[in-house]
């Protein structure tokens, strides 16, 4: 379960997922529960990989560090 940081890119408004240990900095193209409530679940990245984060009660404020599972 790597720790990942989710942030919104100021220029493009796109959400990125960043994993320091893996140098991964990738756009999130789809979120399973896109909010406003709940928020989270499966995240689909632009490179095709998927991560799972525990759904949160509502959309958090970004950036935020959470534990995610690669699926």
């Amino acid at each position: 379960m790597p720790k990942v940081m989710l942030r919104r890119d100021r220029d493009t408004g796109a959400m990125t997922l960043y994993v320091a240990k893996q140098d991964l900095e990738e756009n999130v193209v789809a979120v399973q529960h896109a909010g406003p409530a709940p928020w989270g679940g499966e995240l689909q990245l632009a490179d095709g990989s998927k991560y799972f984060i525990e759904p949160m009660e509502s959309e958090p404020s970004f950036p935020i560090t959470v534990r995610a599972k690669r699926i």
């Binding site: 940081m5 942030r7 950036p63």
Partner: peptide
């Protein structure tokens, strides 16, 4: 970049 990302998360300071 590590500390900049941390400050963005903890203190809400954007970085560029």
């Amino acid at each position: 970049n590590y500390i900049s990302r941390h400050m963005e998360e903890k203190y809400g300071i954007p970085w560029m």
